[in-house]
Design a protein around this nucleic acid. Structure first.
Length: 566
RNA sequence: CGGUGAUUAGCGCAGCUUGGUAGCGCAUCUGGUUUGGGACCAGAGGGUCGGGAGUUCGAAUCUCUCAUCACCGACCA
Protein backbone atom coordinates (compact mmCIF):
# COMPACT_ATOMS: atom_id res chain seq x y z
CA UNK A 1 0.00 0.00 0.00
CA UNK A 2 1.21 3.46 -0.89
CA UNK A 3 0.42 6.01 1.82
CA UNK A 4 -0.43 8.60 -0.84
CA UNK A 5 -3.31 6.34 -1.94
CA UNK A 6 -4.35 5.38 1.58
CA UNK A 7 -6.36 6.96 4.39
CA UNK A 8 -3.75 7.29 7.11
CA UNK A 9 -5.92 9.62 9.22
CA UNK A 10 -3.39 10.16 12.01
CA UNK A 11 -3.77 13.01 14.48
CA UNK A 12 -1.20 14.95 16.42
CA UNK A 13 -3.41 15.95 19.31
CA UNK A 14 -5.05 13.63 21.80
CA UNK A 15 -8.83 14.07 21.84
CA UNK A 16 -9.94 15.36 25.22
CA UNK A 17 -12.58 12.75 25.98
CA UNK A 18 -10.34 9.69 25.60
CA UNK A 19 -9.25 8.48 29.01
CA UNK A 20 -7.37 5.25 28.52
CA UNK A 21 -4.26 4.95 26.41
CA UNK A 22 -5.73 2.45 23.94
CA UNK A 23 -8.63 4.77 23.18
CA UNK A 24 -6.31 7.75 22.72
CA UNK A 25 -3.97 5.83 20.46
CA UNK A 26 -6.74 4.27 18.39
CA UNK A 27 -8.05 7.75 17.65
CA UNK A 28 -4.62 9.24 17.02
CA UNK A 29 -3.44 6.32 14.90
CA UNK A 30 -6.46 6.67 12.64
CA UNK A 31 -8.01 3.33 13.62
CA UNK A 32 -11.46 4.42 14.76
CA UNK A 33 -13.77 7.43 14.80
CA UNK A 34 -16.78 7.86 17.01
CA UNK A 35 -20.14 8.13 15.30
CA UNK A 36 -22.26 8.34 18.46
CA UNK A 37 -22.01 7.12 22.04
CA UNK A 38 -20.61 3.59 21.95
CA UNK A 39 -20.65 3.42 18.15
CA UNK A 40 -17.43 3.55 16.13
CA UNK A 41 -16.45 3.58 12.49
CA UNK A 42 -13.37 1.48 11.83
CA UNK A 43 -10.88 3.24 9.55
CA UNK A 44 -8.41 1.34 7.34
CA UNK A 45 -5.71 1.04 10.01
CA UNK A 46 -8.26 -0.31 12.47
CA UNK A 47 -9.89 -2.70 10.04
CA UNK A 48 -6.54 -4.21 9.13
CA UNK A 49 -5.86 -5.04 12.78
CA UNK A 50 -9.40 -6.25 13.33
CA UNK A 51 -9.13 -8.61 10.35
CA UNK A 52 -5.84 -10.01 11.63
CA UNK A 53 -7.28 -10.74 15.06
CA UNK A 54 -10.32 -12.23 13.39
CA UNK A 55 -8.14 -14.45 11.23
CA UNK A 56 -6.18 -15.85 14.19
CA UNK A 57 -9.44 -16.58 15.97
CA UNK A 58 -10.92 -18.19 12.87
CA UNK A 59 -7.91 -20.44 12.32
CA UNK A 60 -7.89 -21.64 15.91
CA UNK A 61 -11.63 -22.23 15.94
CA UNK A 62 -11.32 -24.32 12.80
CA UNK A 63 -8.47 -26.21 14.44
CA UNK A 64 -10.79 -26.97 17.38
CA UNK A 65 -13.29 -28.51 15.00
CA UNK A 66 -15.72 -25.62 15.24
CA UNK A 67 -17.55 -24.80 12.01
CA UNK A 68 -18.20 -21.28 10.82
CA UNK A 69 -21.74 -20.04 10.23
CA UNK A 70 -23.29 -16.56 10.11
CA UNK A 71 -26.50 -15.64 11.91
CA UNK A 72 -28.57 -12.43 11.65
CA UNK A 73 -28.04 -9.50 14.02
CA UNK A 74 -31.78 -8.88 13.98
CA UNK A 75 -33.66 -11.58 15.83
CA UNK A 76 -37.40 -12.15 16.28
CA UNK A 77 -38.71 -11.67 19.81
CA UNK A 78 -40.57 -14.99 19.98
CA UNK A 79 -37.30 -16.92 20.38
CA UNK A 80 -36.46 -14.69 23.33
CA UNK A 81 -39.94 -15.29 24.73
CA UNK A 82 -39.28 -19.03 24.55
CA UNK A 83 -36.21 -18.89 26.75
CA UNK A 84 -37.73 -16.26 29.02
CA UNK A 85 -34.93 -13.82 28.31
CA UNK A 86 -37.34 -11.34 26.70
CA UNK A 87 -38.39 -10.55 30.29
CA UNK A 88 -35.14 -11.29 32.11
CA UNK A 89 -32.84 -9.17 29.97
CA UNK A 90 -32.96 -5.55 31.00
CA UNK A 91 -32.77 -2.40 28.89
CA UNK A 92 -29.42 -3.64 27.64
CA UNK A 93 -31.44 -5.59 25.08
CA UNK A 94 -32.38 -3.19 22.29
CA UNK A 95 -35.90 -3.94 21.13
CA UNK A 96 -37.75 -2.50 18.17
CA UNK A 97 -40.59 -3.24 15.79
CA UNK A 98 -40.69 -3.73 12.07
CA UNK A 99 -43.27 -2.24 9.68
CA UNK A 100 -45.75 -4.94 10.68
CA UNK A 101 -45.39 -4.00 14.36
CA UNK A 102 -43.66 -7.28 15.13
CA UNK A 103 -41.10 -7.25 17.94
CA UNK A 104 -37.43 -7.78 17.23
CA UNK A 105 -34.17 -7.42 19.10
CA UNK A 106 -30.71 -6.45 18.02
CA UNK A 107 -28.77 -9.53 19.08
CA UNK A 108 -26.53 -9.14 22.14
CA UNK A 109 -25.76 -12.88 21.89
CA UNK A 110 -27.03 -15.79 19.84
CA UNK A 111 -28.00 -18.75 22.05
CA UNK A 112 -31.62 -18.57 20.91
CA UNK A 113 -30.87 -18.34 17.23
CA UNK A 114 -28.31 -21.12 17.18
CA UNK A 115 -30.53 -23.40 19.25
CA UNK A 116 -33.40 -22.71 16.83
CA UNK A 117 -31.09 -23.71 13.98
CA UNK A 118 -29.89 -26.88 15.64
CA UNK A 119 -33.29 -28.08 16.78
CA UNK A 120 -34.44 -27.96 13.18
CA UNK A 121 -31.34 -29.31 11.47
CA UNK A 122 -30.08 -31.92 13.92
CA UNK A 123 -32.27 -34.91 14.65
CA UNK A 124 -29.96 -37.77 15.51
CA UNK A 125 -27.22 -38.53 18.02
CA UNK A 126 -25.12 -39.49 15.00
CA UNK A 127 -24.80 -35.80 14.10
CA UNK A 128 -23.32 -34.95 17.50
CA UNK A 129 -21.28 -33.44 18.94
CA UNK A 130 -21.58 -30.31 16.87
CA UNK A 131 -19.67 -27.06 17.39
CA UNK A 132 -20.68 -23.92 15.44
CA UNK A 133 -19.21 -20.43 15.54
CA UNK A 134 -19.55 -17.06 13.92
CA UNK A 135 -17.68 -13.79 13.96
CA UNK A 136 -20.31 -11.17 14.12
CA UNK A 137 -21.45 -7.76 15.26
CA UNK A 138 -23.30 -7.70 18.56
CA UNK A 139 -25.27 -4.90 20.10
CA UNK A 140 -25.75 -4.25 23.80
CA UNK A 141 -27.28 -1.00 24.88
CA UNK A 142 -24.71 -0.39 27.62
CA UNK A 143 -25.73 2.08 30.32
CA UNK A 144 -22.37 3.68 30.10
CA UNK A 145 -20.18 2.96 27.10
CA UNK A 146 -16.60 4.00 27.74
CA UNK A 147 -12.96 3.59 26.83
CA UNK A 148 -13.64 3.51 23.08
CA UNK A 149 -14.12 0.03 21.68
CA UNK A 150 -13.24 -1.49 25.06
CA UNK A 151 -16.84 -1.09 26.16
CA UNK A 152 -18.84 0.01 23.17
CA UNK A 153 -22.46 -0.70 22.38
CA UNK A 154 -21.80 -2.26 19.00
CA UNK A 155 -18.83 -4.61 18.91
CA UNK A 156 -17.37 -7.56 17.09
CA UNK A 157 -17.42 -10.92 18.78
CA UNK A 158 -16.63 -14.52 17.98
CA UNK A 159 -19.26 -16.72 19.56
CA UNK A 160 -19.28 -20.51 19.39
CA UNK A 161 -21.91 -22.96 20.60
CA UNK A 162 -21.47 -26.68 21.07
CA UNK A 163 -24.14 -29.38 21.35
CA UNK A 164 -23.83 -32.74 23.10
CA UNK A 165 -25.73 -35.58 24.63
CA UNK A 166 -23.62 -36.00 27.76
CA UNK A 167 -21.78 -33.82 30.26
CA UNK A 168 -18.63 -35.85 29.53
CA UNK A 169 -18.82 -35.00 25.85
CA UNK A 170 -19.42 -31.33 26.71
CA UNK A 171 -16.43 -31.39 29.07
CA UNK A 172 -14.22 -32.73 26.30
CA UNK A 173 -15.17 -29.95 23.89
CA UNK A 174 -14.91 -27.41 26.70
CA UNK A 175 -11.36 -28.55 27.39
CA UNK A 176 -10.48 -28.35 23.69
CA UNK A 177 -11.91 -24.85 23.44
CA UNK A 178 -10.03 -23.84 26.59
CA UNK A 179 -6.80 -24.98 24.96
CA UNK A 180 -7.78 -23.28 21.69
CA UNK A 181 -8.34 -20.01 23.56
CA UNK A 182 -4.89 -20.27 25.08
CA UNK A 183 -3.40 -20.71 21.61
CA UNK A 184 -5.34 -17.67 20.34
CA UNK A 185 -4.02 -15.35 23.03
CA UNK A 186 -0.51 -16.72 22.72
CA UNK A 187 -0.52 -16.14 18.97
CA UNK A 188 -1.80 -12.63 19.53
CA UNK A 189 1.18 -12.00 21.77
CA UNK A 190 -0.87 -11.02 24.80
CA UNK A 191 -0.11 -11.48 28.47
CA UNK A 192 -3.29 -13.22 29.60
CA UNK A 193 -4.70 -15.47 32.33
CA UNK A 194 -7.60 -17.91 32.36
CA UNK A 195 -9.59 -17.50 35.58
CA UNK A 196 -12.58 -19.13 37.21
CA UNK A 197 -15.67 -17.07 36.55
CA UNK A 198 -19.23 -16.52 37.53
CA UNK A 199 -21.73 -17.60 34.88
CA UNK A 200 -23.85 -14.47 35.22
CA UNK A 201 -27.06 -14.10 33.26
CA UNK A 202 -26.03 -16.62 30.58
CA UNK A 203 -26.44 -19.32 33.19
CA UNK A 204 -24.78 -22.70 33.50
CA UNK A 205 -22.32 -24.31 35.84
CA UNK A 206 -18.64 -24.30 34.89
CA UNK A 207 -17.14 -21.15 33.42
CA UNK A 208 -13.76 -19.55 32.77
CA UNK A 209 -12.85 -16.07 31.67
CA UNK A 210 -9.71 -15.12 29.78
CA UNK A 211 -8.24 -11.83 30.91
CA UNK A 212 -5.59 -9.64 29.39
CA UNK A 213 -3.68 -8.12 32.28
CA UNK A 214 -3.78 -4.31 32.27
CA UNK A 215 -4.03 -1.54 34.84
CA UNK A 216 -7.01 -0.10 33.03
CA UNK A 217 -8.94 -3.38 33.21
CA UNK A 218 -12.48 -3.14 34.51
CA UNK A 219 -12.34 -6.49 36.32
CA UNK A 220 -10.44 -7.48 39.43
CA UNK A 221 -8.88 -10.90 39.22
CA UNK A 222 -7.45 -12.87 42.08
CA UNK A 223 -4.38 -15.11 42.12
CA UNK A 224 -2.93 -17.48 44.66
CA UNK A 225 0.81 -17.31 45.18
CA UNK A 226 0.86 -20.94 46.23
CA UNK A 227 -0.99 -22.62 43.38
CA UNK A 228 -2.56 -22.11 39.95
CA UNK A 229 -5.75 -20.83 41.50
CA UNK A 230 -7.05 -17.75 39.67
CA UNK A 231 -10.56 -16.35 39.69
CA UNK A 232 -12.58 -13.28 38.96
CA UNK A 233 -13.16 -11.44 42.23
CA UNK A 234 -16.89 -11.93 41.60
CA UNK A 235 -16.31 -15.64 41.92
CA UNK A 236 -13.39 -15.95 44.37
CA UNK A 237 -14.58 -17.50 47.60
CA UNK A 238 -13.51 -16.45 51.05
CA UNK A 239 -13.05 -19.08 53.68
CA UNK A 240 -14.14 -18.85 57.28
CA UNK A 241 -11.31 -17.65 59.55
CA UNK A 242 -9.57 -20.50 61.31
CA UNK A 243 -10.03 -21.11 65.02
CA UNK A 244 -12.59 -20.06 67.56
CA UNK A 245 -14.04 -16.60 67.74
CA UNK A 246 -12.16 -14.69 70.50
CA UNK A 247 -14.03 -14.67 73.79
CA UNK A 248 -15.88 -11.48 74.78
CA UNK A 249 -13.80 -9.13 76.91
CA UNK A 250 -16.05 -6.07 76.96
CA UNK A 251 -19.55 -5.29 78.09
CA UNK A 252 -21.91 -4.00 75.42
CA UNK A 253 -22.54 -0.29 75.84
CA UNK A 254 -24.58 2.29 74.01
CA UNK A 255 -22.61 5.33 72.84
CA UNK A 256 -23.85 8.61 71.42
CA UNK A 257 -22.32 9.06 67.96
CA UNK A 258 -24.03 12.10 66.47
CA UNK A 259 -21.37 12.80 63.86
CA UNK A 260 -20.59 9.27 62.75
CA UNK A 261 -22.72 8.18 59.82
CA UNK A 262 -20.05 6.12 58.12
CA UNK A 263 -17.51 3.58 59.23
CA UNK A 264 -14.73 6.02 58.34
CA UNK A 265 -16.19 8.71 60.60
CA UNK A 266 -16.79 6.21 63.37
CA UNK A 267 -13.22 4.94 63.60
CA UNK A 268 -11.83 8.44 63.28
CA UNK A 269 -13.81 9.72 66.26
CA UNK A 270 -13.63 6.72 68.56
CA UNK A 271 -11.01 4.27 69.77
CA UNK A 272 -12.02 1.53 67.41
CA UNK A 273 -10.21 -0.52 64.81
CA UNK A 274 -11.95 -0.83 61.47
CA UNK A 275 -11.72 -4.63 61.80
CA UNK A 276 -13.83 -4.29 64.93
CA UNK A 277 -16.77 -2.67 63.21
CA UNK A 278 -19.45 -4.15 61.01
CA UNK A 279 -21.55 -2.67 58.24
CA UNK A 280 -25.22 -3.50 57.97
CA UNK A 281 -26.58 -3.39 54.44
CA UNK A 282 -30.29 -3.72 53.90
CA UNK A 283 -31.47 -5.29 50.68
CA UNK A 284 -34.78 -6.39 49.26
CA UNK A 285 -35.96 -9.95 49.69
CA UNK A 286 -37.43 -12.11 46.95
CA UNK A 287 -41.16 -11.89 46.40
CA UNK A 288 -41.58 -15.44 47.68
CA UNK A 289 -39.84 -14.64 50.95
CA UNK A 290 -41.93 -14.02 54.04
CA UNK A 291 -39.88 -10.89 54.73
CA UNK A 292 -39.58 -7.75 52.66
CA UNK A 293 -36.05 -6.83 53.69
CA UNK A 294 -32.93 -8.71 54.65
CA UNK A 295 -29.83 -7.40 56.42
CA UNK A 296 -26.37 -8.38 55.23
CA UNK A 297 -23.55 -7.89 57.69
CA UNK A 298 -19.92 -7.56 56.71
CA UNK A 299 -16.85 -6.28 58.50
CA UNK A 300 -16.24 -2.54 58.26
CA UNK A 301 -13.14 -2.91 56.10
CA UNK A 302 -14.77 -5.33 53.65
CA UNK A 303 -16.81 -4.89 50.49
CA UNK A 304 -20.05 -6.63 49.68
CA UNK A 305 -19.91 -9.05 46.74
CA UNK A 306 -23.20 -8.49 44.93
CA UNK A 307 -23.11 -11.79 43.11
CA UNK A 308 -22.62 -13.81 46.24
CA UNK A 309 -25.40 -11.84 47.94
CA UNK A 310 -27.94 -12.37 45.21
CA UNK A 311 -27.30 -16.10 45.27
CA UNK A 312 -28.69 -16.27 48.82
CA UNK A 313 -32.08 -17.94 48.82
CA UNK A 314 -34.11 -15.04 50.22
CA UNK A 315 -32.29 -12.15 48.54
CA UNK A 316 -33.83 -10.59 45.44
CA UNK A 317 -31.88 -10.97 42.23
CA UNK A 318 -30.77 -8.59 40.81
CA UNK A 319 -29.63 -7.20 44.10
CA UNK A 320 -31.54 -4.14 45.18
CA UNK A 321 -30.70 -1.96 48.14
CA UNK A 322 -33.54 -0.71 50.30
CA UNK A 323 -34.18 3.01 50.08
CA UNK A 324 -33.71 5.25 53.10
CA UNK A 325 -37.51 5.56 53.47
CA UNK A 326 -37.94 1.78 53.50
CA UNK A 327 -35.16 1.43 56.06
CA UNK A 328 -36.69 4.08 58.31
CA UNK A 329 -40.10 2.48 58.04
CA UNK A 330 -38.74 -0.93 59.03
CA UNK A 331 -36.05 -0.02 61.56
CA UNK A 332 -36.88 3.46 62.79
CA UNK A 333 -33.35 4.70 62.11
CA UNK A 334 -31.40 5.90 59.08
CA UNK A 335 -28.72 4.00 57.16
CA UNK A 336 -25.92 5.59 59.21
CA UNK A 337 -26.98 3.98 62.47
CA UNK A 338 -27.78 0.38 61.60
CA UNK A 339 -26.53 -2.73 63.34
CA UNK A 340 -27.48 -6.31 64.11
CA UNK A 341 -28.72 -5.71 67.66
CA UNK A 342 -32.52 -5.30 67.82
CA UNK A 343 -32.87 -5.46 64.06
CA UNK A 344 -36.40 -6.51 63.08
CA UNK A 345 -35.49 -8.61 60.04
CA UNK A 346 -33.48 -11.71 59.16
CA UNK A 347 -29.73 -11.26 59.19
CA UNK A 348 -27.05 -12.96 57.10
CA UNK A 349 -23.53 -12.52 58.45
CA UNK A 350 -20.30 -12.82 56.51
CA UNK A 351 -17.74 -15.33 57.81
CA UNK A 352 -15.28 -12.64 58.79
CA UNK A 353 -17.90 -10.51 60.52
CA UNK A 354 -19.15 -13.59 62.36
CA UNK A 355 -15.63 -14.10 63.69
CA UNK A 356 -15.51 -10.65 65.32
CA UNK A 357 -15.88 -10.10 69.01
CA UNK A 358 -16.20 -6.88 71.00
CA UNK A 359 -17.20 -5.05 67.83
CA UNK A 360 -19.05 -1.80 67.19
CA UNK A 361 -22.15 -1.28 65.10
CA UNK A 362 -25.17 0.99 64.83
CA UNK A 363 -27.84 0.71 67.52
CA UNK A 364 -30.78 1.10 65.13
CA UNK A 365 -31.48 4.40 66.84
CA UNK A 366 -30.33 7.57 65.09
CA UNK A 367 -26.99 8.86 66.39
CA UNK A 368 -26.37 5.85 68.63
CA UNK A 369 -23.96 2.94 68.27
CA UNK A 370 -23.27 -0.09 70.44
CA UNK A 371 -19.66 -0.89 71.21
CA UNK A 372 -18.42 -4.19 72.63
CA UNK A 373 -21.04 -6.27 70.88
CA UNK A 374 -20.56 -10.03 70.95
CA UNK A 375 -22.39 -12.60 68.88
CA UNK A 376 -24.63 -15.05 70.75
CA UNK A 377 -24.27 -13.10 74.02
CA UNK A 378 -25.81 -9.84 72.74
CA UNK A 379 -27.42 -10.85 69.51
CA UNK A 380 -28.19 -14.14 67.80
CA UNK A 381 -25.84 -14.95 64.96
CA UNK A 382 -28.29 -16.35 62.42
CA UNK A 383 -27.16 -17.50 58.99
CA UNK A 384 -23.43 -17.22 58.23
CA UNK A 385 -22.28 -17.09 54.61
CA UNK A 386 -19.63 -15.89 52.19
CA UNK A 387 -20.75 -12.36 51.37
CA UNK A 388 -17.69 -10.27 50.71
CA UNK A 389 -15.04 -9.71 48.08
CA UNK A 390 -11.73 -11.28 48.87
CA UNK A 391 -8.95 -8.86 49.73
CA UNK A 392 -5.25 -8.98 49.10
CA UNK A 393 -3.63 -11.34 51.62
CA UNK A 394 -6.66 -13.54 52.23
CA UNK A 395 -5.88 -17.25 52.26
CA UNK A 396 -6.56 -18.90 48.93
CA UNK A 397 -9.77 -20.95 48.83
CA UNK A 398 -7.81 -23.73 47.13
CA UNK A 399 -6.03 -24.28 50.45
CA UNK A 400 -2.52 -23.20 49.56
CA UNK A 401 -1.06 -19.73 49.29
CA UNK A 402 -2.43 -16.25 49.83
CA UNK A 403 -4.28 -14.09 47.35
CA UNK A 404 -3.07 -11.17 45.27
CA UNK A 405 -5.32 -8.99 43.11
CA UNK A 406 -4.65 -7.61 39.62
CA UNK A 407 -6.72 -5.82 37.00
CA UNK A 408 -7.81 -7.57 33.84
CA UNK A 409 -9.70 -6.95 30.62
CA UNK A 410 -12.12 -9.75 29.87
CA UNK A 411 -11.45 -10.87 26.29
CA UNK A 412 -12.83 -14.40 26.38
CA UNK A 413 -15.45 -16.30 28.32
CA UNK A 414 -16.39 -19.97 28.07
CA UNK A 415 -19.39 -21.62 29.72
CA UNK A 416 -20.87 -25.04 30.21
CA UNK A 417 -24.51 -24.17 29.79
CA UNK A 418 -26.03 -27.58 30.33
CA UNK A 419 -29.59 -28.15 29.22
CA UNK A 420 -31.23 -24.85 30.16
CA UNK A 421 -31.60 -23.36 26.67
CA UNK A 422 -32.19 -26.66 24.90
CA UNK A 423 -34.89 -27.56 27.39
CA UNK A 424 -36.81 -24.28 27.18
CA UNK A 425 -36.56 -24.39 23.40
CA UNK A 426 -37.23 -28.08 23.10
CA UNK A 427 -34.01 -28.93 21.30
CA UNK A 428 -33.66 -32.70 21.38
CA UNK A 429 -32.51 -35.56 19.19
CA UNK A 430 -33.12 -39.30 19.11
CA UNK A 431 -30.43 -41.15 21.06
CA UNK A 432 -29.06 -44.63 20.46
CA UNK A 433 -32.08 -46.10 22.18
CA UNK A 434 -34.40 -44.23 19.84
CA UNK A 435 -35.59 -42.00 22.71
CA UNK A 436 -35.85 -38.21 22.60
CA UNK A 437 -33.01 -36.64 24.57
CA UNK A 438 -32.48 -32.96 25.37
CA UNK A 439 -29.20 -31.47 24.18
CA UNK A 440 -26.45 -30.25 26.48
CA UNK A 441 -24.76 -27.04 25.39
CA UNK A 442 -21.58 -25.06 25.80
CA UNK A 443 -20.91 -21.52 24.65
CA UNK A 444 -17.64 -19.73 24.02
CA UNK A 445 -17.08 -16.02 23.36
CA UNK A 446 -14.12 -13.92 22.27
CA UNK A 447 -14.35 -10.12 22.18
CA UNK A 448 -12.62 -9.48 18.88
CA UNK A 449 -12.84 -5.68 18.85
CA UNK A 450 -12.04 -5.53 22.55
CA UNK A 451 -8.88 -7.53 21.94
CA UNK A 452 -7.64 -4.77 19.64
CA UNK A 453 -7.95 -2.25 22.48
CA UNK A 454 -6.54 -4.69 25.04
CA UNK A 455 -3.51 -5.37 22.86
CA UNK A 456 -2.76 -1.65 22.72
CA UNK A 457 -3.06 -1.36 26.49
CA UNK A 458 -0.21 -3.87 26.70
CA UNK A 459 1.81 -2.67 23.72
CA UNK A 460 2.52 1.05 23.63
CA UNK A 461 5.21 3.61 24.37
CA UNK A 462 5.54 7.38 24.25
CA UNK A 463 5.65 7.35 20.44
CA UNK A 464 2.56 5.24 19.90
CA UNK A 465 1.56 1.62 19.46
CA UNK A 466 4.09 -1.22 19.48
CA UNK A 467 2.13 -4.02 17.78
CA UNK A 468 3.27 -7.60 17.87
CA UNK A 469 3.85 -8.78 14.29
CA UNK A 470 0.79 -11.02 14.37
CA UNK A 471 -1.74 -8.19 14.47
CA UNK A 472 0.08 -5.09 13.20
CA UNK A 473 -1.84 -3.24 10.48
CA UNK A 474 1.29 -3.51 8.32
CA UNK A 475 4.31 -5.66 8.96
CA UNK A 476 6.77 -3.43 7.14
CA UNK A 477 7.08 0.29 6.41
CA UNK A 478 9.35 1.69 3.72
CA UNK A 479 10.33 5.25 4.54
CA UNK A 480 12.32 7.09 1.85
CA UNK A 481 14.20 10.30 2.65
CA UNK A 482 13.60 13.08 0.12
CA UNK A 483 12.49 10.69 -2.52
CA UNK A 484 11.15 13.41 -4.82
CA UNK A 485 14.65 14.90 -5.03
CA UNK A 486 16.74 11.75 -5.27
CA UNK A 487 16.23 9.38 -8.18
CA UNK A 488 18.48 6.89 -6.50
CA UNK A 489 16.32 6.79 -3.35
CA UNK A 490 13.21 6.57 -5.46
CA UNK A 491 14.57 3.65 -7.44
CA UNK A 492 15.63 1.63 -4.39
CA UNK A 493 12.41 2.37 -2.54
CA UNK A 494 10.25 1.30 -5.46
CA UNK A 495 12.28 -1.84 -6.00
CA UNK A 496 12.05 -2.88 -2.35
CA UNK A 497 8.33 -2.09 -2.29
CA UNK A 498 7.73 -4.34 -5.28
CA UNK A 499 9.85 -7.08 -3.78
CA UNK A 500 8.01 -6.90 -0.45
CA UNK A 501 4.69 -7.23 -2.25
CA UNK A 502 5.97 -10.23 -4.20
CA UNK A 503 7.01 -11.84 -0.95
CA UNK A 504 3.48 -11.38 0.38
CA UNK A 505 4.53 -8.95 3.09
CA UNK A 506 1.96 -6.40 4.30
CA UNK A 507 3.91 -3.29 3.44
CA UNK A 508 3.20 0.43 3.69
CA UNK A 509 5.31 2.55 1.35
CA UNK A 510 5.33 6.11 2.67
CA UNK A 511 5.56 7.91 -0.66
CA UNK A 512 4.05 11.16 0.61
CA UNK A 513 5.96 14.34 -0.09
CA UNK A 514 6.46 14.89 3.62
CA UNK A 515 9.39 15.83 5.76
CA UNK A 516 11.18 12.87 7.38
CA UNK A 517 10.03 13.79 10.88
CA UNK A 518 6.40 13.64 9.86
CA UNK A 519 6.81 10.22 8.29
CA UNK A 520 8.75 8.75 11.23
CA UNK A 521 6.20 10.06 13.69
CA UNK A 522 3.25 8.57 11.77
CA UNK A 523 4.88 5.19 11.25
CA UNK A 524 5.76 4.97 14.94
CA UNK A 525 2.31 6.11 16.00
CA UNK A 526 0.50 3.44 14.01
CA UNK A 527 3.04 0.94 15.25
CA UNK A 528 4.44 -0.80 12.19
CA UNK A 529 6.94 -3.28 13.68
CA UNK A 530 9.61 -3.25 10.96
CA UNK A 531 10.85 -0.12 9.20
CA UNK A 532 13.24 0.32 6.29
CA UNK A 533 14.73 3.79 5.94
CA UNK A 534 16.23 4.66 2.55
CA UNK A 535 18.28 7.81 2.10
CA UNK A 536 21.24 9.12 0.16
CA UNK A 537 23.27 9.16 3.34
CA UNK A 538 23.18 5.36 3.72
CA UNK A 539 23.09 4.61 -0.01
CA UNK A 540 26.48 6.35 -0.24
CA UNK A 541 27.75 3.58 2.01
CA UNK A 542 25.99 0.96 -0.07
CA UNK A 543 23.53 0.10 2.71
CA UNK A 544 20.04 0.87 3.95
CA UNK A 545 18.78 1.21 7.47
CA UNK A 546 16.55 -1.25 9.31
CA UNK A 547 14.67 -0.18 12.44
CA UNK A 548 12.77 -2.38 14.84
CA UNK A 549 9.81 -0.53 16.35
CA UNK A 550 9.58 -2.56 19.54
CA UNK A 551 13.24 -2.85 20.46
CA UNK A 552 14.26 0.50 18.96
CA UNK A 553 17.24 -1.30 17.48
CA UNK A 554 18.72 0.31 14.33
CA UNK A 555 21.12 -1.44 12.03
CA UNK A 556 22.60 -0.83 8.61
CA UNK A 557 22.35 -3.72 6.19
CA UNK A 558 23.18 -4.40 2.57
CA UNK A 559 20.13 -3.93 0.36
CA UNK A 560 20.06 -7.56 -0.71
CA UNK A 561 20.01 -8.72 2.94
CA UNK A 562 17.15 -6.57 4.10
CA UNK A 563 14.42 -9.22 3.93
CA UNK A 564 16.43 -11.50 6.21
CA UNK A 565 16.13 -9.02 9.06
CA UNK A 566 12.61 -9.90 10.12
C1' C B 1 -31.41 6.39 36.44
C1' G B 2 -29.02 10.20 40.09
C1' G B 3 -24.97 13.99 40.74
C1' U B 4 -21.53 17.32 38.23
C1' G B 5 -19.81 19.71 34.02
C1' A B 6 -19.70 20.76 28.89
C1' U B 7 -21.62 22.12 23.73
C1' U B 8 -18.16 28.54 19.78
C1' A B 9 -14.25 26.54 12.35
C1' G B 10 -12.16 19.57 10.93
C1' C B 11 -9.47 19.09 16.15
C1' G B 12 -8.06 21.62 20.90
C1' C B 13 -9.71 26.01 23.18
C1' A B 14 -10.51 31.66 24.48
C1' G B 15 -14.47 35.21 24.44
C1' C B 16 -19.70 35.07 28.53
C1' U B 17 -18.68 37.92 34.95
C1' U B 18 -19.85 43.75 32.83
C1' G B 19 -24.92 42.39 26.01
C1' G B 20 -22.67 46.28 20.90
C1' U B 21 -21.74 42.50 13.90
C1' A B 22 -16.60 36.20 16.61
C1' G B 23 -10.89 35.13 17.95
C1' C B 24 -6.24 31.95 18.94
C1' G B 25 -3.29 27.36 18.13
C1' C B 26 -3.20 23.02 15.19
C1' A B 27 -5.16 21.06 10.64
C1' U B 28 -6.66 22.40 5.31
C1' C B 29 -5.65 25.15 0.44
C1' U B 30 -2.14 28.44 -2.78
C1' G B 31 2.86 30.35 -3.71
C1' G B 32 7.87 30.35 -2.16
C1' U B 33 11.95 28.50 0.75
C1' U B 34 13.48 23.99 3.27
C1' U B 35 14.42 18.43 3.70
C1' G B 36 17.49 12.27 8.54
C1' G B 37 12.73 13.48 13.79
C1' G B 38 5.94 16.53 13.84
C1' A B 39 10.04 23.20 9.55
C1' C B 40 9.77 28.48 7.93
C1' C B 41 7.72 32.94 5.24
C1' A B 42 3.55 35.16 2.72
C1' G B 43 -1.46 34.70 1.58
C1' A B 44 -6.43 32.22 1.52
C1' G B 45 -10.79 29.40 2.69
C1' G B 46 -13.76 27.73 6.63
C1' G B 47 -18.51 29.45 12.12
C1' U B 48 -27.10 30.26 11.20
C1' C B 49 -21.68 30.32 18.57
C1' G B 50 -26.06 22.50 19.85
C1' G B 51 -31.91 23.35 18.73
C1' G B 52 -36.21 26.25 20.15
C1' A B 53 -38.48 30.20 22.88
C1' G B 54 -38.01 34.67 25.77
C1' U B 55 -35.84 39.57 27.74
C1' U B 56 -33.62 43.71 24.88
C1' C B 57 -32.98 48.93 20.17
C1' G B 58 -29.31 44.92 20.03
C1' A B 59 -27.82 38.12 22.65
C1' A B 60 -22.14 33.54 21.78
C1' U B 61 -22.87 36.54 26.37
C1' C B 62 -28.92 37.19 30.44
C1' U B 63 -33.62 33.76 31.33
C1' C B 64 -36.47 29.33 30.24
C1' U B 65 -36.70 24.81 27.67
C1' C B 66 -35.18 20.65 24.81
C1' A B 67 -31.21 17.71 22.85
C1' U B 68 -26.43 15.63 22.74
C1' C B 69 -21.78 14.47 25.01
C1' A B 70 -18.38 13.56 29.03
C1' C B 71 -16.94 12.43 34.12
C1' C B 72 -18.43 10.29 39.11
C1' G B 73 -22.00 6.93 41.21
C1' A B 74 -25.70 3.19 40.56
C1' C B 75 -26.02 -0.60 36.71
C1' C B 76 -23.77 -4.49 33.55
C1' A B 77 -22.25 -12.08 29.74
Amino acid sequence: MRSSKYLLATQKETPSDAEVVSHQLMLRAGMIRKLASGLYTWLPNGVRVLHKVEQVVREEMNACGSIEIHMPTVQPSDLWQETGRWDKFGPELLRFQDRHSRDFVLGPTHEEVVTELVRKEVNSYKQLPLNLYQIQTKFRDEVRPRFGVMRSREFLMKDAYSFHLSPECLQKTYDEMYAGYCRIFERLGLEYRPVLADTGSIGGSVSHEFHVLAESGEDAIVFSDGSDYAANIEKAETIAPAGERPAPSQEMQEVATPNAKTIAELIEQFELKIEQTVKTLIVKATEESEHQLIALIIRGDHELNDIKAEKLADVASPLEFASEEEIRAAVGAGPGSLGPVNLPMPVVVDYAAAHCSDFGAGANVDDKHFFGINWERDVALGQVADLRNVVEGDPSPCGSGTLAIKRGIEVGHIFQLGEAYAESMNAAVLNEQGKNQTLTMGCYGVGVSRIVAAAIEQNNDKYGITWPDSIAPFKLAIVPMNMHKSHRVQEVANKLYEEAKERGIDVLFDDRKERPGVMFADIELIGIPHVIVIGDRSLDKGVIEYKNRRSGEKIEVAIEDIFNQF
